[in-house]
Design a binder for these strands. Sequence first.
DNA 1: GTAGGGTTAG
Length: 538
Amino acid sequence: MQQTGIPPNKVTFSVVLKACAMIPALQQGKQFHSDIIKSGFESDVILGSTLVDMYVKCGCIEDARQVFNNMHERNVVSWTAIIAGYAQQGLGKEALELYEQMKQKHVQPDVVTYVVLLKACASIAALEQGKQLHLDIIKSGFELSVIVGNTLVGMYAKCGSIEDARQVFNSMHERDVVSWNAMIAGYAQQGLGKEAFNFYKQMKQEGLQPDIATYVVLLKACASIAALEQGRQLHLEIIKSGFESDVILGNTLVDMYAKCGHVQDARRVFNNIHELNVVSWTAIIAGYAQQGLGKEALDLYEQMKQEAVQPNIVTYVVLLKACASIAALEQGKQLHLDIIKSGLELDVIVGNTLVDMYAKSGCIEDARQVFNNMHERDVVSWNAMIAGYAQQGLGEESLTLLEQMQREGLKADEVTYGSVLSACSHSGLVDKGCQVFDSMCKDHGIIPTIEHYVCMVDLLGRAGCLAEAENFISKMSVPPNFLVWMTLLGAAKNHGHVEIGRHAFGCAVKLEPENAAPYVLLSNIYAAAGWRDEVANI
DNA sequence: GTAGGGTTAG
């Protein structure tokens, strides 16, 4: 067209931008953007909205925002396009903030706006805001739309409120296969595999045909509860339905078999996928890694590279976890280089996984270096580093990091405190550990888990404060479990404390009468004390 | 003849 010299008009540009969004093709999109400016169509509201959508679909939310900010005129479509962009990137907070601005400008939301806002809530599990939107939707009468109903079901399910999802589903005037899929997916996400299958049965009874997404969500339900037999049954149905060549379904089957512990079956499905993509490779690599077969996982990575499939963030995370599980430091370092080459080292999740890999491989200095070089750190980053110090028994360092993290305004969570307490215990920092525990409960409002209690008993017990440990157990807000008593019993053994040992033994045996471990420890205590008859008796 | 939306893979 350009060769014939016919000048493109607004409609032409609109159509080609849509093509760029579909592929997606950022470079060509940018070229058209500059052509639009040259042609003087810049201020057209339709082209502006299309440009926003093109940048969104190409993953460039910043460029989309810039176009949006420079628009002379903005209507509901323009606002919806940019809000959808933030929602798709998982930036639900920013999306909801834009909605507030939109209302201030007196632009009325329509059905599509509500759909993308609900998706924004789903992306950040903002249940309260989702409920408020639900009320607005009812007021506007949009709840009769099937798409709105389906989105509400998905929003409630992703926010963890499966009851609300069910209520919306039941009240819907019209349902299609997506409605059923959304409900089944909701149950699968919550690990409620049985309910998911009940819905599937009901769906078929009502005469609806399952589609590819139905099978995908059902297989996820199987994976979540390791229901191998139902997974096999579905596999047969998929073959009968003719969907077996679908790559997404194939990848989901690989994942289902792997999560059910049948990596051989996973491999068989993998070998039959016609067009293996990065997800297929990642799924099978993750399958081997989850089974503790780190070497096989790394071998597959080599094959993947030979097939010229480009790994992405998820692939690297899975591979680093495989390295960490077998402490394969050399391969981990090689992966680190590959990650730097691919430009993905700035991703927070990748950084966190690198810290964890180095720490688990015993290279605390390398872990710290990655940690220091990270551009952005979240609570997981700090937890990974602190856990590394805890594993090395470096109590002071973990305490310093806890303080530093709090100074930087991050909230330590139960995982952080678990690591810090464990580090204190291994370093003999009794007073510090007790202070941290008190501060965790009183200043930070964290309810201690049984793991925290075990740590505290270990901390006191190791230091020889057995009476304090026993007293601590008597004041716990949850009933002490077997491990708590075993920890006290172990401490009693190490410090030759017969009375407390007997008490801990009695409580442990009450909880797990079949377990031989308490008997072994108590007999050791008696033996050390020279009580031969008691040893024989036990 | 032109713009934004629902379920679904690692």
